[in-house]
Design a protein around this nucleic acid. Structure first.
Lengths: 214, 214
DNA sequence: TAGATTGTTAATCGATTAACAATC
DNA sequence: TAGATTGTTAATCGATTAACAATC
């Protein structure tokens, strides 16, 4: 079976398709054409068809796409039909917020453990899960089949901790630390650099203001 | 003065340059060439020079770039030389975490107010700032010169609240709700869709595993 | 001056859009 | 069957990379 590499540009759009299809499905709508999707999502119908066709034909000429089927297929592509077991490293505000968030918001991502260096937090329960010292990580990851680690620790620690986690057998890292991690190619990293995001917003605000001044 | 539109691809890379230049500056390094930056940042030297040249020449032939000067210039481009006043709408876990984050992590972004519909939270202090009812938003935004609103409320409310904020005179929205906002072109929106990000990670993990199975 | 490295033009690559034949 | 709409090829557009002349 030949592997055609799908570009990250396409992957990046899948969750948004998934979200809109959820809504259509929830609204009881059965079928949708690329043109209709185009209208509500503000992207070209051509792009929609190209994107879907990266994964084989989900539609039918003259009919369009079956909403429920398409929704389900995109879910499978995104790996949402499997269960992910994740731990959070760093029990600060952001770590605690994500613990709650991940647990409730999305099925399939199971919050299993929370680790922190701060001994004052050890034993404290966050959403029913005890904060553990980081020395416990290795055993915990291996015994509980953890595949995703969420990094909400300062950047000074993040690089080292990431390397440890890779050793312990983690498959992916959701990285909230403001630093680029250094991990092997087979380990997936998804960065959420909040300050970068805020800076982009700042740029765009400034740009618009000076556009007006011209 | 002619306005050449800078692509969002370039803007998206500026915060990362800014971060690396911070580190070089902090390490006491005075000059850097595009080739040296290329080596540590893992992007092409050509792209670095192209990116910087969108904003005019920051370097000098035969020398390279002065780290401190370049760092400073990129900061200015990103609007980090100004002060932004921001409020957070939604005092849940994420809102509270961001309140702390924004306040401490980045200069120039001043956390000024926190709003929530839940009356049980009203009057409670988060990082020294009282949670207010959302009815106070209009007056507060206008009187305190607020330019950025951070949305950490459920998607059901987000669209309406965003429209209100625009009316009150906000310039930019940092949107953490899982919904596309509907605001005029002159209002800047920066989305942080955490669940989208987690889905991308999920996809890449699945993809790698099946790559191996082939 | 010679060497180094930018600024910038030209070439390449990839992603988006347009068009239309295939087909339900 | 006729109409609609996909799947897919071709055209366009934009972003990245390569190359090199300008110049410090």
């Amino acid at each position: 079976m030949e592997e055609k590499e799908i570009s990250q540009a396409v992957i990046g759009r899948l969750p948004r398709y998934f979200r809109y299809l959820s809504e259509l499905k929830y609204a009881g709508i059965e079928r949708v054409s690329s043109q209709e999707l185009s209208d509500i999502m503000k992207v070209t119908a051509s792009q929609i068809r190209q994107d879907f066709n990266n994964f084989g034909g989900f539609g039918q000429q003259g009919y369009g796409y079956n909403v429920e089927f398409l929704h389900n297929e995109i879910g499978k592509i995104l790996g949402l039909d499997r269960t992910h077991h994740l731990i959070i490293i760093g029990a600060g505000n952001l770590g605690q917020a994500l613990a709650n968030y991940v647990n409730f918001e999305r099925r399939g991502f199971l919050f299993r453990g929370l680790f922190d260096n701060n001994s004052e937090l050890h034993g404290k329960k966050i959403w029913g899960i005890e904060v553990q010292p980081m020395e416990n990580m290795e055993v915990f990851v291996k015994e509980n089949n953890i595949d995703i680690a969420v990094l909400t620790i300062p950047k000074t620690e993040a690089v080292t901790v990431a390397e440890q986690l890779v050793e312990y057998g983690i498959k992916g890292i959701w990285n909230f630390a403001h630093v680029d991690l250094n991990v092997p190619e087979n380990i997936q990293v998804e960065n959420v650099h909040l300050s970068d995001s805020l800076m982009k917003l700042s740029y765009n605000i400034s740009r618009f203001e000076s556009d007006n001044t011209k």
